[in-house]
Design a protein around this nucleic acid. Sequence first.
RNA 1: GCCGCGUUCGUCUAAGGGUUAGGACACCACCCUUUCACGGUGGUGAUACGGGUUCGAAUCCCGUACGCGGUACCA
Length: 511
Amino acid sequence: MNKNVRVRFAPSPTGGLHLGGVRTVLYNYLFARHNAGEFVLRIEDTDQTRFVPGAEDYIVQCLQWCGMIPDEGPVTGGPYAPYRQSERKSLYRQYAEQLVKSGHAYYAFDRPEELESMRERFKTATNPAPQYDHNVRLEMRNSCSLTLEETETLLEDGVPHVIRIRMPENETVTFNDMIRGEVSFNTGLVDDKVLLKADGMPTYHLAVVVDDYLMKITHAFRGEEWLPSSPVHVLLWKYLGWEDAMPQWAHLPLILKPDGNGKLSKRDGDRLGFPVFAMNWTDPKTTELTKGFRELGFMPEAFINMLAMLGWNDGTDQEIFTIEELISKFSIDRVHKGGAKFDFEKAKWFNHEWIKRSDAARLLPDVKRVLADNGLNIADDALLSSVITLVKDRCTLLTDFYDQSKFFFETPQQLDLDAVRPKWNAEKKTFFEAAIAQIEAAPAFQATEQEAAFKELAAKHNIKPGELMMPLRIMLVGGKFGPGVFDIAAIIGKNETIHRIQQALKQLDLA
RNA sequence: GCCGCGUUCGUCUAAGGGUUAGGACACCACCCUUUCACGGUGGUGAUACGGGUUCGAAUCCCGUACGCGGUACCA
């Protein structure tokens, strides 16, 4: 009974992929997978003045990183190719012309200056932004105000023109939004949107309807900012004679900035110090780099999980979901109506949870990369794995693995000796010299055995073990952090442990 | 201005006529821990306002306020 579910993510390739954009993809993706449907990527590049090289490729890579691979799209191809609207340009005109013929659209020859002067002319205190609508339609240069002959002459002369929809003067358009329920609009209050631009490209309004129809889209998810223009789209479906095929609409709530109000923007991230884009984005014009969640050390699982929870929940207290769980549990009727302020602290919490719950095998490649980025190339996977297991609880971001584990692989250069000196004395020095000898003589070098031996030696020297633990830690790690000291000693090995104690003793002597 | 959409702890949210309004992040306190974390226990903290409807309203209706979005040959 259900027709095959088909959804699309239709971004405009004008820059980095924003959080809100990723969430829109995510909801599309979850809905498609939940219903065993298809997920299509369509590039809406109808505005040639806003073309940004690299932006499309960037979007594709973001989807890949997040694990949301489109079933059809510009890279993958598919039965409804091409999936770039710029490559579908020739397709749209006929539909616009069809609308002109049926009287639902008209040619407009107004030049930009004329539009501007109209807005100036009709601007009043109570109408600060006059629209091109039924009130002014007949006062403009278009096929409604001109005679048939005049229009034809202009067309024949190749005078630049657009095609506009003719919005009815006073009708009510009502449709059922999957998230908001019934919404309705008076058509007389909506302007005669341009459908086909002077350069022959469609506007979003025409293209979205034509392509959703041609690509057999069944459910259309988009941001709430599209709600006001939805009556235009609904009317277009009707006028084109496709009413029965119209997708079900779902207008998603917006992601808001953490402070104050308003849509979250890249600027907010820069200003408040958190990422807004999924991955690093370099503006090709300014070469300005904007940091992304990926490079900052987020796991895609956590990123997706966090985004899913921003406006949706499954009705229980569960907050950590795998993508498989999200797919099986996702439902539109549990999507919130109101916008959600983005909270970077909570985002980090999700990542921390994911790091804690991931095993060393999952983390290994990422940690390896993080260490390598910092000049630490670790070839021993078994060794790295045990280090990861030891330190992952302390890492909120993947990038934290460097600080939390570098001392396993290189001798710390900067020791926090200020934490040792106040209570440092000759007895302790003697103890550590004895400890070196003891370690040297130890047959095996295991954490538990070493700890026992260390404490025994402390007793022999009449020093409380507690007095010695911090100095030992500083000697091995460099600072007041990290896993159990003897676990660290066991991993770095006998010789390195001795070497670090000797080094610290030497530095302590200098003071 | 006009149109549309929204409004539960600081933040994300649960509760779709009857709950001491629940959970999570953050914050605070304590416990655990010879470091830092993890973990555990507890605490502070919310139904925007005003009217209805009802035995009973966070929940349904109306109004107000506030916020957001739109009002382009941008998406």
